[in-house]
Design a protein around this nucleic acid. Structure first.
Length: 239
DNA sequence: CCAGACGTTGTT
DNA sequence: GTCTGG
DNA sequence: CCAGACGTTGTT
DNA sequence: GTCTGG
């Protein structure tokens, strides 16, 4: 599964990698430990211009029909096996596919009942990558505002992840970005929902304190962009 | 997903 | 053990 | 017909 | 909004 990830790319780097050229959200810095319920940048097609754009959304998808935001606490992931038919995801899968920029995802390997080791999994190339994501717009009647949320699709682990965990996020190769984002097409890109090529990935154990890093709240994003506090997460990365 | 709290009364 | 906040 | 769920992971 | 269970 994917309950945490690393995004060391700032807005500029993301715009370059995902070829986003148009107007976009305010600047933001990296997040070294992205947690559910925080606002993160995603890439999607602008509904009017059909150009790629970066939008900030909250992690934990709330279907447009939800009566309350509660369901968003358990929809940080969507299973590839059921995403086309599940009531909470099927409409978004057809019409609101997006890419979630990341540089690594974190998995805690279970050693025994009370011990677990955190690992980071990234591309050997060190390039950023995109999770296959879905987004929704939910009308919060209480707050009288629209809330944008997203989820990350999961699939079976590849050979790199299998020793660590029984699920992994769907990561899309660059060549498939366009097809995934093209929500106008009547062709549903189901074939893209598969484990990433293991030969191109690497995993390494990270410091236990990764779980204590709290530098990705919306309030801190602006501060981070000027004074980033970078944990040594990538120091040992065999990239 | 993890980390951290897990309580009450009264006062602002 | 279980819930909440991030 | 209405009421209630709609989700994932991991743990028991 | 739509499906399932009763």
């Amino acid at each position: 599964m994917c309950g945490r990830y690393v995004r060391r790319s700032d807005k500029q780097r993301i715009a370059e990698h995902f070829h986003v050229y148009g107007p976009s959200v305010p600047d933001f810095g990296p997040s070294w430990n992205v947690a559910p319920q925080t606002f993160q940048p995603i890439v999607r097609l602008n509904r009017d211009t059909r150009e790629r754009e970066i939008v900030m959304m909250r992690w934990g998808l709330i279907p447009y029909w939800a009566k309350g935001p509660q369901i968003g606490l358990s929809t940080i992931n969507a299973k590839a096996e059921t995403v086309a038919t599940a009531p909470s995801f099927r409409e978004a899968f057809k019409r609101r596919r997006c890419l979630v920029p990341a540089d690594a995802f974190l998995e805690w390997q279970k050693i025994d009942a009370k011990t677990k080791k955190p690992f980071a999994i990234a591309l050997k190339s060190g390039e950023p990558y995109g999770f296959a994501g879905l987004s929704e717009r939910w009308h919060d009647k209480a707050a009288g505002a629209e809330l944008l949320t997203f989820t990350v699709i999961t699939t079976d682990p590849n050979a790199v992840v299998e020793p660590l965990h029984n699920r992994m996020p769907v990561i899309l190769p660059e060549r498939d970005y366009s097809r995934w984002l093209d929500v106008d097409s009547s062709q549903i890109p189901m074939d893209l929902l598969r484990p990433y090529e293991a030969d191109q990935m690497t995993a390494w154990e990270v410091d236990k304190r990764i779980g204590n890093v709290r530098n990705d709240s919306p309030e801190l994003l602006e501060e981070q962009s000027t004074t980033p506090k970078e944990p040594s997460l990538f120091d040992d990365a065999p990239l």
